[in-house]
C-alpha cells in the first residue's frame, strides 16, 4: 500500500470511484433522517474514499486534498460542533442538547428545530469520524512516520 502500485487500471478506477464514494457518503448523511445512515456511516464512507486514494496513489496524494493540520483541526472541530450545539440552548433557559430551543435563533418551529438540530450534530459526527478514521489509517499504515516515508519515496527507497 505504501509501495507505488504501478497499475494504471487501479488508478483509473480509483479516480472514477472516489467522487462517487464521496457523493454517496453525502447521500448517506443527508438521508440519515429517513433511511438507514447518518453521520457515523457517512463519515466512515468519506474516510474510505481517502483511504482509497492512499491505497491507489500514496499518502501524499491524500494529504494534498486534506493536509495533516487541517485533518487535526477537523478531529476537534466535529465534536466541538456537536458539543457546542448542545451548549447553545443553555443560553435561552433550555437544557443541554435540547434542540427545540434552537428555534429562538433560527426561523423554525420547535419540532423542525429538533430536526435540523439533529442534522447539525450529525454533521459534527461525520466530520470527526472522517478525520479520525483518516488519521488512524495514516498513522497505522506508516507507523506514525508520514514524512520520512514520503521522503524515502522521493529518494527511491522502497521500504
Amino acid at each position: 500500500m505504501v509501495k507505488d502500485p504501478d497499475d494504471i487500471i487501479v488508478r483509473t478506477v480509483a479516480r472514477f470511484m472516489i467522487p462517487i464514494i464521496q457523493l454517496f457518503s453525502l447521500y448517506v448523511y443527508v438521508h440519515g433522517h429517513i433511511s438507514p445512515g447518518g453521520g457515523f456511516q457517512g463519515g466512515c464512507i468519506l474516510a474510505a474514499s481517502f483511504i482509497l486514494i492512499s491505497l491507489a496513489f500514496n499518502i501524499g496524494e491524500a494529504k494534498k486534498i486534506l493536509s495533516g493540520r487541517k485533518n487535526l483541526l477537523f478531529i476537534g472541530l466535529g465534536v466541538f460542533i456537536y458539543a457546542f450545539t448542545g451548549l447553545v440552548p443553555l443560553f435561552v433557559q433550555g437544557n443541554f442538547l435540547d434542540y427545540q430551543h434552537l428555534s429562538q435563533f433560527l426561523p423554525l418551529d420547535p419540532v423542525m428545530a429538533r430536526y435540523y438540530g439533529v442534522a447539525l450534530v450529525e454533521l459534527g459526527v461525520q466530520i470527526t469520524v472522517m478525520a479520525v478514521m483518516i488519521s488512524l489509517f495514516q498513522d497505522l499504515v506508516t507507523a506514525g512516520r508520514h514524512e520520512s516515508i514520503l521522503k524515502d519515496r522521493e529518494n527511491g527507497i522502497d521500504r
Partner: peptide
C-alpha cells in the same frame, strides 16, 4: 469535555 476539544484545537 468541550475544553478538551478546545485544548486540542
Amino acid at each position: 469535555l468541550i475544553m478538551s476539544f478546545v485544548t486540542f484545537m
